[in-house]
Design a protein around this nucleic acid. Structure first.
Lengths: 338, 338
DNA sequence: GTTTGGCACTCTTGTTGACCGAGTGCCAGT
DNA sequence: ACTGGCACTCGGTCAACAAGAGTGCCAAAC
């Protein structure tokens, strides 16, 4: 159906359109790529490609532009992986060097990603799913009111304020001890089960405060970290001012809703490599004319989360994919060390 | 120079222009407001107002639009404070009800402010300047590596990981005790001085680890909280798609830079009431055609920070100012209770 | 002296029509 | 199977034109 030459032509259309932002015609195609055939031949092939749904014309007598299906084929079979330049690699390491904690790593990552892809970057906080509990601390601030702190093997530290009714210092120390014995070294995913088991073993007078503490802990391991997403490079959207309604506006709206962002990234979480969602493949309806390039980042089983970028479907997929992959790997390595 | 009628006319021009988004001419003016004079008279007065720099015409034979100076006069002398509707007041309290901690208060505040003003909202985290130290905690995670936690009277909890060389549990407990005796109840601003004094009193073997801990503490009280700013309502910018270059683009760029945001809000920090910076009055050059409406929020001396909104100079100042003021007061009250 | 109606003038906006160029689809010829 | 040629179709641009909005100014009226 699609012989090699037609694929070459599709590839040429995609690359030309991405760089020029304008529909590309048969003449321009033979001029810029040495296809060894005449414009007329290219036209015939283009007619076939259009029939198959890989390209389309905005209007009669205009050049062709790729459809979502065309981009998909390009990404799957035609895109040559473009390795990062030495300058880019160096930029990554200098940019990330000297990060002091997880917050800082995430902040730097989002900036870096936005800068080298020139798109809007989204980075999810390292999720605790496969992390283990390193320390649980319970402090009393004023009588009856205190703080629960959770430190995990991923280097995250979370805290929450709680109210536990009357409680002596001794009882508090007991509770702290029991908690640590029961939880330290365990995967954070098991905290809810273990918490339930622990409750049954406690002396009755400890149960009310313990339930408050455990509830807070469960919130910390489950709800919070998974919902934290950081965004950067929003001004890059201004490059697409001509597509205000189709790109700028929907992206700004999507960025406001963490739930949407997580959904966009979430789909990438399963795969180990870079995932691309093109236009209508997108799970979030308003982002019809944008693509998401995302990747999980991880080291072994310790950390697992996603990062990615959002941009118009008309983007340079090979470079973008290479950049996202490189940054994801680098960050995974940094988190493994820290 | 400017009699009452001219001021009335200026006020009418501002309100009409804000609501219609179009230059307003003499006829429309007499039609919509019962000024009791003819268009010709209005034209004469407008000529004077233009000469004085309060209004201008985009081109000959167009209506007039207010200049920055015109808006300034309007805000200072002509704007009638528009009290919030009952629905708006109710919206504020339901929106903020059930906030669980400072993070949550800030998150909700920024959403609320964006929603009721329909602009981009900026909220600075409560600054510790006038807060006092409530608790200092030093934990050991693994040998040689630990965590410093600072809790303040403003309800903020910050932590940082540190490396303190070899240190026994006893030494750690001593250090913790000394720190709390020296610092608890003191204003966070005094932490740097007190830290220096404390160093001199410590046993020599405690000094190296102590210096690491104190350095972290000083960072926590000074650098971090002051630089934290949360932004929301960015999609509201899409309402100004027609002013892409002058409003959307510069605002997006400003939002990316925390330093800029702090500068915008910072100027408002001194005053107790709502501050308005109109167009060129703005300290940040690219925001020439936008205004910032900001207010400090506080309760007594405990918490002190700013919040505000950014939007086109052509905004409804009375409502916006009323909204910002109301939210700032409400949040101050909530923080005082929490 | 202030206000007003009238009028000429200016400038933007929208419309129309012509024209140009880019690009296509098709067909006959190689 | 490829190619050159040709008629056809649109979008974009430009000029000319009309309509409309608004002003500035002046002489007359209050």
């Amino acid at each position: 159906m699609l012989d090699d030459r037609k694929l070459d032509i599709l590839r040429a259309i995609v690359t030309d359109y991405v760089s020029s932002q304008e529909p590309v015609g048969s003449r321009a195609l033979v001029d810029r790529h040495n296809l060894g055939v005449s414009p007329a031949t290219v036209r015939n092939d283009m007619a076939v490609l259009e029939e198959e749904g890989y390209i389309t014309q905005p209007h009669t007598s205009a050049g062709r532009i790729p459809t979502d299906k065309g981009y998909r084929l390009f990404v799957d079979r035609l895109g040559t992986v473009k390795p990062l330049s030495i300058a880019e690699r160096r930029a990554i390491s200098t940019f990330m060097a000297g990060a002091i904690d997880v917050d800082d790593v995430v902040r730097r990552t989002v900036r870096l990603l936005a800068q080298i892809t020139q798109q809007v970057a989204i980075v999810q906080y390292p999720v605790l799913t496969r992390a283990t509990v390193r320390l649980v601390e319970v402090l009393s601030l004023v009588p009856g009111r205190g703080l629960v702190i959770l430190v995990t093997s991923a280097g995250r530290v979370d805290q929450r304020q709680i109210d536990f009714g009357a409680l002596t210092d001794d009882q508090l120390a007991t509770l702290r001890g029991r908690l640590n014995v029961a939880l330290v070294g365990q995967p954070t995913t098991r905290v809810p089960d273990l918490a339930a088991a622990l409750m049954d073993e406690l002396a009755p007078e400890l149960r009310p405060p313990a339930s408050v503490v455990l509830a807070a802990l469960i919130e910390l391991v489950s709800a919070d970290p998974a919902t934290r997403v950081v965004v950067g490079g929003v001004p890059n959207l201004t490059r697409f001012g001509d597509q205000f309604e189709t790109t700028v506006k929907p992206v700004l709206e999507a960025l406001e809703e963490q739930v949407v962002l997580l959904r966009l990234l979430g789909e990438a979480g399963g795969s180990a490599d870079v995932t691309v969602r093109i236009g209508s493949e997108n799970p979030y309806e308003p982002l019809q004319s944008t693509s998401v390039v995302a990747s999980a980042y991880s080291h072994g089983d310790d950390v697992w989360a996603s990062m990615g970028i959002v941009g118009p479907t008309r983007m340079d997929y090979p470079s973008t994919m290479a950049s996202v992959r490189a940054v994801a790997r680098y960050v995974g390595r940094i988190l493994a060390e820290g």
